[in-house]
Nucleic acid binder design. Structure first.
Lengths: 345, 345
DNA sequence: ATCGTTTATGAAAACGTTTTCAGCGGATGA
DNA sequence: TCATCCGCTGAAAACGTTTTCATAAACGAT
């Protein structure tokens, strides 16, 4: 009674064989009603819980999935995680979360750990993007994987759910241009980072389309820390003529950028227009409220979970390999004013 | 080669028995140097990784710990998690994270799930506090557990790491009183929530000590959602005379409170003084910057991990059962002005 | 030289399940 | 009536380790 009851105890208590207990409890066919009720009663009486380890060992499936993140302290990531984890939990999966602390070289070790735990699926929002060991690892092992906002590696069972960053960045640029801006800066995450790449390319293309000469020095790329973003933002602001608008690609980057603007005494929404990515509490409560490219993080997480479950069950049956979710531009006070650029006369 | 190599493959390849392989790889005594090198070479050659499930099943230990949170989207929680998880990872533990979505009635089910996965330890930052099923569950099962900022349940192997909320709340009250405030409001989380209890009691005691009559209607308690906090804050602000200062106990609550103040057109730092708990990005970047009770979340997480590992290894050897970490009051512009209360003349 | 002790190794049991295999009784079909 | 099949059940194998047990060789001490 103090120790855990095993299937043998149940079998003994119900005066049947262990195999019958297993069949009865797992709703196998060809088991008589009488035996089933007897077993169920015995199981309840002994408060029997199947031993997870033995079950998984025999079954060859852990019913748990691994989640790799750069940092769970990032509000965007944690929101996605929460949504995905809920969907997975309702399907009987537990998720073990591991963080690479935004160190690209740790990604592969984290994945290896997860794989050694024999997870039945992987959701990856890793730090590294370039064709690195971690990508090769995913390719080699055959674990069903969905990558979050990344270019999926080739593989029979790897999927991706992405956000359509480009179209909203384009809208943002055109919005700023319409407000009279001609010197628009850009700060993003690391160059190799997929979302940054998408946004930066869209930024360039939109500028070209608007026939605004590209000033390379107005684009900077920071690591995923406030301090680095702060430093890069300061560097960006040393250019002349000063940019009159700034597109900030990433919520951690935004923290650093705001600090830098404060530091340089540039008033957001008056001296400089600001467009950020991802609508977090800060962007709504900031005075002035900041224009933002919003996406449904909940949907993102849920979609990832759905895709992964399909990948696990369909066993390779083809469905959409990569799903692209929409984004939208939400214009707020930080950019909703006309540029009065005196440097251009 | 395509399938995973088992210990039998290694044994066969090295021409020894499986038991010898196990002993050699686990650094057991009484194994000859020759055999050891032979085994190690074979293992490397086959890229042998011990099967986690079989290992754990036999060993009776999973080397993984369960982490229960109300919501990982809460920045305070996620920061603590990141710190704890890192410490645990370096000790060879993986952590499976489960969120009760702030529903107290789900706590117990989450714990049951974790226990059924046979985790070797538990870190609990659950939603419920009162003597509920989840607490009883922790008590009954004998899994080493550390509770985060909670009153630990009685039990041989349960520990707690708490924050000294009280002393900083007292400081905050005295600080506000010194600035001339006599109508100080309080918004906290749910009444049964341990940190809320600590803070509220300290608030009451400090007011009494300052010989300020307690106005019950100036204290309100909200669920862990911005919308509820918003509603409660609005209700609070309908009292007359209006409070000239507000202590907000919780970062999610703060979001709602700020929205409410904005809604009522009350300027923080001029019309009303504000003190919040936990120093998040928002409190630093808000204009005006908001006074805050800060604590070292990293230390909190690391301490929890350390305590848990001790609890797992020492096997009941007594050490400090509950550790209380300090907090400090950081005064910023939101409260650093003198109250000009005209309702009192 | 003999005995007891230590070292080194292999065979087999154990962990707690699920699944395969085999057997039994009864029903079905010719 | 007999062969066949089907529903139901139990015995045993299997999953991949670790650990216990047994045994042979080496070794030190009397």
């Amino acid at each position: 009674m103090s120790q855990k009851a095993t299937i043998h105890d149940v079998a003994h208590h119900a005066r049947v064989s262990v195999s019958s207990v297993s069949r009865a409890l797992n709703n196998y066919p060809h088991v008589s009603e009488a035996l089933k009720t007897r077993v169920v009663e015995a199981a309840e009486e002994l408060d029997y819980q199947p031993a997870f380890l033995a079950h998984s060992l025999r079954r060859g499936e852990t019913n748990s999935i691994g989640f790799l993140v750069g940092s769970i302290a990032n509000p965007v990531i944690s929101t996605i995680y929460e949504a995905a984890a809920e969907a997975l939990a309702t399907n009987g999966y537990a998720v073990t979360l591991v963080s690479s602390r935004n160190q690209a070289d740790l990604d592969s070790a984290c994945l290896r750990l997860l794989a050694s735990r024999q997870v039945s699926g992987l959701i990856v929002s890793s730090a590294s993007e370039s064709p690195q060991p971690s990508r090769r690892f995913i390719q080699e092992t055959n674990i069903p994987t969905v990558m979050l906002d990344r270019e999926p590696v080739a593989g029979e069972r790897v999927f991706a759910v992405q956000s359509d960053h480009a179209s909203s960045i384009r809208k943002a640029v055109f919005h700023l241009v319409k407000k009279g801006h001609r010197h628009i800066g850009f700060i993003g995450g690391p160059r190799g980072f997929y979302p940054t790449q998408q946004r930066y390319r869209a930024y360039q293309e939109a500028l070209a389309e608007a026939r605004i000469p590209l000033r390379d020095e107005l684009a900077r790329f920071a690591a995923f820390t406030e301090t680095d973003a702060f430093a890069e933002a300061l560097l960006l602001m040393r250019n002349r003529p000063l940019p009159t608008a700034l597109i900030v690609a990433g919520n951690i980057i935004l923290i650093g950028a705001l600090q830098a603007l404060k530091d340089r005494q540039l008033a957001v929404g008056r001296d400089i227009a600001l467009v950020a990515c991802d609508d977090i509490h800060l962007t709504q409560l900031h005075r002035p409220a900041v224009t933002v490219i919003r996406r449904d993080l909940n949907l993102l997480g849920k979609t990832a979970a759905r895709l992964l479950l399909q990948g696990i069950q369909n066993n390779g049956n083809r469905s959409d390999r990569v799903i692209k979710l929409p984004t939208q531009l939400v214009i707020r006070e930080s950019s909703n004013f006309h540029c009065r650029d005196d440097s251009q006369g």
